[in-house]
């Protein structure tokens, strides 16, 4: 799994390429927590290149969401492949995580 950072308006966009599984999720978690510690409270995850997501990733999403909400920011997911969307949906995460089709759709 590869991670790249970029900025889009107020959003810090982290682009994920590769599976988010129990072995890779800690790295994603570390990246998110770094950003939050850096005061970047608007985090967007571009998952278009992530074909796989397990509960390990969900936990990472959830802890990041808690942190940014506590810091007055927000979190969004963009470009969800079908399997990932399905996992989020089955786990009930679509009700708490805003999802957009692509990065241009992020709220300014």
């Amino acid at each position: 799994m590869d991670l790249t950072d970029s900025t889009r308006g107020k959003w810090t966009v982290i682009t994920v390429s590769g599976r988010i599984d129990a072995t890779t999720a800690p790295r994603l978690d570390a990246a998110l927590q770094d950003a939050i510690r850096a005061g970047r409270m608007w985090l967007a995850l571009d998952l278009a290149g992530a074909p796989y997501l397990s509960s390990a990733g969900l936990r990472v999403f959830l802890s990041a969401l808690k942190a940014v909400q506590a810091g007055g920011g927000g979190m969004a997911l963009a470009g969800l492949p079908d399997p990932v969307r399905e996992v989020l949906e089955v786990a009930g995460f679509l009700t708490i995580l805003p999802v957009v089709a692509g990065l241009p759709d992020l709220e300014p």
């Binding site: 397990s54 509960s55 969900l58 936990r59 959830l62 969401l65 808690k66 909400q69 996992v87 089955v90 786990a91 009930g92 995460f93 009700t95 708490i96």
Partner: peptide, 20 residues
């Protein structure tokens, strides 16, 4: 099956196993 930002989650994995 109902996620909440306010509370820790356990059992999500097994939930997914049963769902899939």
């Amino acid at each position: 099956g109902r996620a909440s930002a306010g509370q820790p989650v356990g059992g999500i994995g097994l939930h997914l196993v049963h769902a899939f």
